[in-house]
Structures are given as C-alpha cells and as structure tokens.
C-alpha cells in the first residue's frame, strides 16, 4: 500500500488499512470505493451540509410555531413534533431520490470512460462483485446521511405526535427508495456509453417515479373515479381502486402520505381499506402503500442489480 505521512492520513484511510490488514476476503473494489468516498473533506462536507440544512429547516419550523403561539411558548408540542417528523422524512426522501443516484450514475460509465472497466473485468472479480463493490459503499454512505438525522427524529418523538410505527413505515420507504434509486443509477450506468447520458436517463426515470406517479395518482385517478361514479360504472370500482393504490404505492411521497394518514385515521399500519366511491358498497382491503412500495422497490432493486451485472459482463 502507498505509505503516506501519518499527518496526511484520513480516517477513511485508517479504516481501510485496518480492514486490509484483517484480510477478511473483502471485495477490493468495495474497499477502494469506500476509501474514495471517505478520503478527503468531501464526504464530511456533504454530511455537514446535509445535517445543517435539515436542522436549519427543523429550527425554522420550531421557531415559526413558537412565534405563532406566544402564549404557550411552543404551542401544541404534538403538532410541532408531527410537523418536524414529516419535514425530516420529506427531506430524507428528497435526499435518497435525487442525491443518492448521483453517486451511482458514474459508477460503471466512469470506469468505461477512464478505460479501467476492462482492467477490472480482466481480474478475478466477477461482474457481480464489480456491481456490489460499487453499490455497497454508496448505500453505506447514504445510510450514514440518513442515520445522521436520527437525533431530529428523536426530537420529534420527544415533542410527541409521532408513533414508533410511523417511524418504521417512514424508514422502510426511505431505505427502499435508497436501494431502488442507487441500483437504478448503477444499472443505467452499466449500459450507458457515458456518464452524461446515464445521468439524464436516470433522473428522467426518478422524476417520473417520484413526481409523475404521485401526480397521476392524486390528480388523474380521482377525476377518473369521479367521472365513473357519476356515470354509475361501479362494477369497475375494485379494479380502479387497486390500480390507484398500486400507483400511489409506487411513489415514495404518495405511499408515505397515504400510509401515515391511514395509520392516524384507523390505527392500522399494515393494511388499508379503500372504498372507491362514497356510496359504493365495495370495500377493498389491501396492504398499506408503504408495504407495497418496500416489496416492489426491493424486488426491482434485485432485478436492476442482476441487469447491471449482465451489462458489465456483456458490454464493452
């Protein structure tokens, strides 16, 4: 290993060096990528900025509520806690949706552009190891960003208005979204000629999923259901409802909002009971949107990883 002067060694270097000494059969590409992420100031700067933004927004929210209720000082603390929770969760979803893919869109295409992909493929690393070696460090770093905001979640619990079950649902959505969007970036990167085209394609799909599906579910389907209800086409209601739940469940924001609302209203975390029309006698019991999202996203992540490994194997 290259010996640097002790004063120049970064914490990431020390960890990687200790891991290398242990010689646990770790994927060398994973160790290299981890070292790349943690070497230098960038990783720590991103982490600091992330915590500062989330904390700043939380502080503004707290101050806003306090000023609006000067008599009681902090107003209704459960309202503040609830608002704080949703703001932090919302920011985490934005983070994993739009920041996490940025770490993987260049993972394979960058190797291709640097002419190092063939060098890796010529070693004893399998395509699957190459893909995992790229993914795990990114997931680890995104997880670190998510966990760094845990104190804000604890503040929300302290203020009240949030149940642990809500936190579990939110964490499922955040982590499943992180898995999907990082593997999406990796998969597109493995097939793209260059990083720019990988970035464009990945973000087009991410925007489609995060925003497009929510818009489609929240605007188009209610309108369609209303039109059908007025037309008396109630026989199509169960199918339409299932489609609506499926669509809303595939959007992180939609899944989380509907799941949390369902829990607050019914106390039921894992299932939702939906009546398509107010007058409809049909009630459909379905898994809660966040459950559907978690299962679908993790399955899709597995498929995308498999496709990425195939692309690494087959494409020059």
């Amino acid at each position: 290993m290259g010996r640097r002067s002790p004063g120049r060694r970064e914490p990431g270097d020390r960890i990687a060096a200790r891991m290398a000494k242990l010689n646990l059969g770790l994927n060398p590409l994973m160790v290299r990528e981890l070292r790349g992420y943690m070497r230098g100031a960038r990783a720590y700067a991103v982490l600091t900025v992330h915590i500062a933004i989330v904390s700043g927004i939380a502080l503004l929210l707290y101050m806003g509520v306090s000023l609006a209720n000067p008599a009681s000082g902090v107003g209704n603390s459960s309202q503040v806690g609830s608002a704080l929770f949703y703001v932090v969760v919302g920011l985490q979803i934005v983070l994993v949706s739009f920041v996490a893919p940025a770490f993987t869109v260049s993972a394979i295409s960058g190797e291709r552009e640097r002419h190092t992909l063939d060098l890796l493929k010529a070693t004893l690393l399998s395509p699957r190891q190459i893909v995992w070696g790229k993914l795990i460090p990114v997931l680890g770093y995104v997880l670190l960003l998510v966990l760094a905001t845990l104190p804000l979640f604890s503040l929300a619990f302290l203020l009240g208005g949030v149940e642990p079950a809500q936190f579990v649902a939110a964490l499922c959505v955040i982590l499943a979204s992180a898995a999907l969007f990082t593997t999406l970036g990796l998969s597109v990167s493995s097939r793209a000629r260059d990083t720019l085209s990988a970035t464009v394609v990945t973000y087009a799909i991410v925007v489609g999923i995060v925003i497009g599906l929510s818009v489609l579910a929240l605007l188009v389907f209610p309108a369609l259901a209303g039109a059908m209800g007025r037309a008396g086409a109630s026989s199509a209601a169960p199918a339409l409802t299932a489609l609506f739940v499926a669509l809303i469940s595939l959007s992180p924001v939609g899944a989380l909002v509907t799941s949390e609302a369902n829990f607050v209203n019914t106390g039921n975390l894992l299932t939702v009971t939906v009546r398509p029309f107010a007058t409809s006698p049909v009630a459909v019991v379905l898994p809660a949107p966040f459950v559907i999202l978690t299962v679908c996203y993790l399955t899709a992540s597995g498929i995308l990883l498999w496709l990425a490994a195939r692309a690494v194997r087959d494409r020059a």
Binding site: G2, E111, R114, H115, T116, A122
Partner: peptide, 16 residues
C-alpha cells in the same frame, strides 16, 4: 492483459 488504452485512477498513488 494490457489494453491499448490502459486507464488509471487519478486519485490513487502508483503503489495503491
């Protein structure tokens, strides 16, 4: 194998 365009990792030292 040494390909015609042999890439490097600019952030690594020679020994690394």
């Amino acid at each position: 194998y040494l390909p015609d365009a042999s890439g490097v990792y600019p952030d690594m030292t020679v020994a690394e």
